[in-house]
């Protein structure tokens, strides 16, 4: 119940920030629609075998990780830009396995999304304990770089029950 109320308040804040109008009618419609949305979601939870998503991330570590991944994205953007603009594109494609050590689905999703978000590497397939990653300009140092990213993602993941 507490989660539903918090969700409704969050949805209403989103409504207010998106519209930016503080007339009574608009605010009333916002309150009504957020309560309606939460009601529908609760009904769906009762109807299906929906498992609630538990978000357990360490806030400070997550913020640090965001800054680190932004810098990493800009660095690899520069690498790929040089490849695209060079007259003879010396690409060297390779598909290799990257093991991951995250326990929760959310942590694995963050790791896979981070791999895809950095240009030059794309996660193609998820297996039991490793991703299949496709790299555009493969070098042996990629394994170490992705292992470091794996470590950092594992660090922001909180305790998993």
């Amino acid at each position: 119940m507490l989660r539903s109320i918090l969700t409704a308040i969050f949805l209403f804040l989103l409504w207010y920030l998106m519209s930016g109008i503080d007339k009574t009618l608009t605010l009333g419609l916002g309150i009504g629609s957020s309560i309606f949305a939460v009601w529908i979601v609760r009904r769906m939870e009762n109807a299906s075998d929906f498992k609630s998503l538990k978000v357990q991330l360490r806030p400070v570590e997550s913020l640090k990780y965001c800054i680190w991944i932004l810098l990493e994205i800009l660095k690899s953007n520069w690498t790929i830009t040089k490849v695209i603009l060079s007259p003879n594109m010396n690409i060297k494609q390779n598909m290799f396995k990257v093991p991951f050590s995250q326990k929760s689905d959310l942590g694995q999703t963050i790791f896979a999304n981070s791999i895809t978000l950095t240009p030059g590497t794309i996660s193609v397939e998820v297996e039991e304990d490793h991703f299949l990653v496709h790299a555009l300009v493969f070098s042996p140092g990629d394994h170490a770089a992705l292992a470091e990213m794996n470590e950092r993602v594992s660090k922001i993941e909180g305790a998993v029950k």
Binding site: I73, L74, N77, I80, T81, I84, M89, I91, Q93, T116, L117, T118, P119, G120, I122, H134, L136
Partner: peptide
Amino acid sequence: FPDFWSRLHAASVTDSG
């Protein structure tokens, strides 16, 4: 880029940077 797999990476430059 010559083939599909390398074009994926080019689209990723637009998507992120």
